[in-house]
């Protein structure tokens, strides 16, 4: 179980995340919504520890992970997989190597420097790719793939990490609707079949309503709503989007949903 207690992050004068506390169970698919700049990315990055919190505690199964460093920190990152909006793959490496990066944290230094991976790891990578229908491209360079395909490779990498928790920062924001659906389906499947919590930042209310079992809304760094999708009423949305829900400024999908 993931627990956040009073987590706060300041960048100079900006209060990016303001005293956030919440917890999340196995099997939950939590969608975080909020205007751009609300602190969604910063929150997820603090959980993976790409960003260090200024204040507060983050714990996993009762163990504090917010003060880890060195090898222990790398281990935690391995267990808590992260998926990015821009995929963050290495375009010049082939797909299977990109996926195998997911096990580099556990491999001995010398053999991973030689780019040597045991057959069992390679087979696992292929199976993860196959589960996302990407095994045919295993030897292709990642940079030659389309956005949706790259995101699936990134998910395969995350799965190879055998994560206990999956974080996804706007995983579908750069994708067309069809690919967005493929990726969201994959995340949902992971959540159900592997019984891990999945936390996903979304800017599309429609997608959030469709896939998530629970929605957390943030505004100016703080949580302003936490509940089932059905609880997202117009008043809540007004608060989340700070009264800016006029047809001109709201994203297309929000207007539709509201």
């Amino acid at each position: 179980m993931l627990e956040l207690h009073g987590v706060t992050k300041r960048f100079g004068d900006t209060l990016a995340v303001d005293n956030v506390s919440f917890s999340c169970q196995r099997g939950e698919l939590v969608g975080i919504i909020g205007r751009s700049g609300a602190g969604k990315s910063t929150l997820l990055r603090m959980v993976n520890r790409l960003t260090d919190p200024t204040d507060g505690h983050i714990s996993w199964d009762g163990r504090d992970v917010s003060r880890l460093n060195g090898a222990a920190l790398r281990q935690w990152r391995r267990r808590c997989a992260m998926i990015f909006q821009q995929f963050n793959l290495c375009p010049r490496l082939d797909v299977i190597t990109n996926v195998l990066v997911g096990v580099v944290a556990e491999r001995p230094l010398a053999s991973s420097l030689m780019k040597f991976f045991p057959a069992a790891d390679r087979a696992r990578a292929i199976l993860e790719l196959d589960a996302l229908d990407m095994a045919h491209a295993a030897l292709q360079r990642a940079g030659t793939l389309s956005g949706g395909q790259q995101q699936r490779v990134a998910i395969a990498r995350a799965m190879l990490q055998e994560p206990e928790l999956v974080l996804a920062d706007e995983p579908v924001a750069s994708l067309d609707p069809v690919n967005a659906e493929v990726v969201m389906d994959a995340l949902q499947k992971i959540c159900r079949e592997r019984n891990v919590p999945v936390i996903v930042n979304l800017h599309s209310l429609e997608i959030a309503r469709r896939y998530c079992t629970r929605i957390v809304a943030m505004s100016k760094g703080a949580i302003v709503f936490d509940g089932p999708p059905a609880g997202l009423t117009q008043t809540v949305l007004d608060r989340v989007y700070a009264g800016r829900m006029t047809p001109e400024t709201a994203p297309f999908s929000i207007v539709e949903a509201a």
Partner: peptide, 25 residues
Amino acid sequence: PRQLEGMRASGAGYAAMIRYGVVPQ
């Protein structure tokens, strides 16, 4: 930097980051 971040998020260490994130680029 995004590629490096992607690697860091998977728990890769400094040497592995140079090897897979920097060298190919």
